[in-house]
């Protein structure tokens, strides 16, 4: 992309501005997520209790319930958005995302199977099930959609949705045989972050941090890959290596998200598209900004989900679906070309 160097000063300015807008939105939604809930805590108190907790109920609620939940939400949002960005870069396809690629469904099928077949397993073991499922789901969709004359948006979407439907039905079947409770099915098909604890945060951090840092290093390679394989090779990039490490990162990022929060959809689809529209396709910039925006979107969705059937909890995946599906329609009506 020649314009990177041409417009570099203007570009730098714009990306810093966007980045800080994103950070601002993220902080605002983060505070909202700490403040809003069955037990109302005024905005003004949130900050105070966050830094210097007292012995009160409000402080306990913030520190033991809402804070871990908000942090899990931010990490999951960031992971999914980056995973989506990487996938869109290597497939050069704006519809690629963990959900459309069958990665989410594969991971959650394996987690459900793990829970049912080996009931004693702890969540740290189930993470590996999620990685395996993510890899298998992604591999199936990749090979189904890249036959013939290359991967077009429509081939990817058809293969992805079909595999997604298959895997979801299998999940439904497993849950139905295991326990007839309908809420379980809904949870495993929608994904949510309510009731997540510090233990989940600790579980996520090493994996997601590895993924995030890896993604930052990969940015340059992905940008050059966007120029086409021949150009990239000419510029001394090892294409095979970039693709392989991308695949591993996607599996890590999406797998850990599903293991902790279930298959939350559309974040990985929407965010990278919006970010690219705002700032072009330099993935050194797109990936970190996507992470911030993804974290913000999931946090906002989580706050909204609390209002669906207040005071009861609803899975956050429903909100992201209600927001994301119309955006998908917008992309689709443009024939799947980049927004």
């Amino acid at each position: 992309m020649q314009h990177i160097s041409e417009q570099s000063s203007l570009f730098k300015y714009k990306w810093i501005l966007t980045f800080f807008c994103g950070i601002f939105v993220l902080i605002a939604s983060f505070i909202a997520s700490l403040s809003i809930g069955a037990y109302a805590i005024p905005f003004a108190d949130v900050f105070k209790l966050l830094v210097s907790p007292d012995d009160g109920k409000a402080a306990s609620i913030i520190h033991t319930i809402r804070l871990p939940r908000a942090i899990v939400g931010m990490i999951v949002g960031a992971c999914l958005a980056i995973a989506g960005g990487i996938m869109q870069a290597i497939t050069n396809n704006p519809l690629a995302s963990p959900q459309v690629f069958g990665v989410n469904a594969g991971a959650s099928l394996m987690v459900v199977a793990g829970v049912v077949l080996f009931p004693g397993l702890g969540s740290s073991t189930l993470v590996y099930f999620a990685f395996l499922g993510a890899a298998v789901g992604g591999a199936i969709v990749y090979s189904l959609s890249s036959t013939g004359e290359g991967m077009t948006p429509v081939k990817l979407a058809l293969a992805g949705i079909t595999v997604h439907l298959f895997l979801s039905s299998l999940i439904e079947g497993i849950v139905l045989f295991h326990e007839t409770s309908t809420e379980d099915v809904l949870f495993w098909l929608a994904g949510g972050i309510d009731g997540r604890t510090w233990a989940d945060v600790r579980l996520m951090i090493p994996w997601s941090l590895t993924g995030l840092i890896g993604a930052l290093f990969l940015g340059k390679g992905l940008t050059i890959l966007g120029l086409g394989d021949d150009v990239a090779r000419g510029l001394g990039q090892r294409i095979g290596w970039i693709r392989a490490s991308s695949a591993i990162l996607v599996i890590l990022l999406a797998g850990i998200s599903v293991a902790v929060a279930g298959p939350i959809g559309f974040i990985g689809l929407i965010i990278p598209n919006i970010v690219r529209k705002l700032m072009g396709s330099d993935y050194r910039v797109v990936l970190p900004v996507s992470a911030v925006f993804g974290a913000a979107l999931l946090t906002i969705s989580d706050v909204l989900s609390r209002f669906i059937s207040f005071p009861a909890e609803s899975p956050v995946g429903i909100v992201t679906a209600l927001l994301g599906a119309p955006f998908f329609l917008y992309l689709a009506s443009r024939g799947g070309r980049a927004a």
């Binding site: 809930g37 069955a38 609620i61 809402r66 009861a312």
Partner: peptide, 16 residues
């Protein structure tokens, strides 16, 4: 309160 007779709630709400 609540429109529904059976509600999935979290710890925070039980506390409340």
């Amino acid at each position: 309160s609540g429109d529904e007779r059976y509600n999935k709630i979290n710890l925070e709400q039980v506390v409340e």
